[in-house]
Amino acid sequence: MKGMTIIVKNISSFVKVLIFLFGIYIILFGHLTPGGGFAGGVIIASSYVLLMLAYGREFAEENLSLSMTSKLDCLGALLFAAVGLFGLFYGAASFFWNFIHQKSWWGEPFNLLSAGTIPLSNIFIGIKVGASLFLVILILSSFRLETSASEKE
């Protein structure tokens, strides 16, 4: 996949950082304002997709390679499961028990550092969703749509 003209390349190299920052804001404030893990993850993926569209697929793959994206994907899911499992160990023995909030380790309501394990879950889900969507678009864009004459009946 080829890139676009030089005007698009210059502007998008500036805008994609802003989109990435916006995505991180949506993820981190997920327990106070609408949004959360999934919506923020989609926005982060879209910043990488902008990179791919403006510069071409090979450049985007050098930036964040296929195997690295796949590993980030698995890592996000495993960390989310680890958050659930910690609830099992810290006393009350239930999966996804909000151990940070119930043990009053941090925060009063309506601050950024509050609501226990919910911001942690949001961050890990954001990583996973962003990596997954970018992986899907990276792989789908590597298909070549010409048909070979020998395959047709």
Partner: peptide
């Protein structure tokens, strides 16, 4: 949707239509 589209693309590679 992602799964359906990728199967459509693969089917186009094989059958040509």
């Amino acid at each position: 949707l992602a799964l359906m589209i990728s199967i459509c693309i693969r089917t186009y590679e094989r059958y040509g239509t």
